[in-house]
Write a protein that binds this DNA or RNA. Sequence first.
DNA 1: TAGAGGGCTCTATTTTATAGAGTTATAATA
DNA 2: TATTATAACTCTATAAAATAGAGCCCTCTA
Lengths: 101, 101
Amino acid sequence: MADTFDYKKIDGIFESRIRLAVLSILATSEKVEFAYLKRKLKATDGNLGAHLKKLEDAKYIKCEKKFIKRKPVSFYYLTNTGRKAIESYLSLVENLFNNAE
Amino acid sequence: MADTFDYKKIDGIFESRIRLAVLSILATSEKVEFAYLKRKLKATDGNLGAHLKKLEDAKYIKCEKKFIKRKPVSFYYLTNTGRKAIESYLSLVENLFNNAE
DNA sequence: TAGAGGGCTCTATTTTATAGAGTTATAATA
DNA sequence: TATTATAACTCTATAAAATAGAGCCCTCTA
């Protein structure tokens, strides 16, 4: 049991349910469209865009822009970094509640 | 795969690293003092008190006040509700990243 | 009933999330 | 090559939440 518990070392990206939801969707899909995420999460453009940006800045997801039927479409997908971050968070949370800290 | 993903159903209590840390400490200890939590987490009185209040309001933890060596001491411990909430969160997070949603 | 001190509440400040309007970028078409 | 259309983004303002710290309150002992 360590003397102090530096909780700020816990990945802050997961400190948000909407980002958790986005990561969950991307972890269990190939590539998904912005519009799909928006519809599924019932999120507004601005809010969803802001959270996607945070996830991109963290390099947990990437964006690929295409044109389909004359319309711009943004596809998002999980990176390896993102997948590792998810695994880390999962095992961290498991350890938090099973092991001594 | 559901049509929508109501991410607001995810327990918001866990949307905070400091609360996660408090729950973790309580889950792996019997009863702990306010001063211990404060020292261990390097938190300020006000901030720690506010988060403990949220956890108490959610009935995840309880407080027991005693006097030891003339000094007031607050002991905190996890409730059954709290333990169940932790288990739910754990399995939810596991499912989020392993199953389809 | 006065004194002491831990832990709380309260207030102010900072940070973060959210909503929605408006802009931007690109491909097809004329 | 200029125009048009539109999804997705950026930007701005608002709301909500976390944080810090000063000071109060409560219960003990003497």
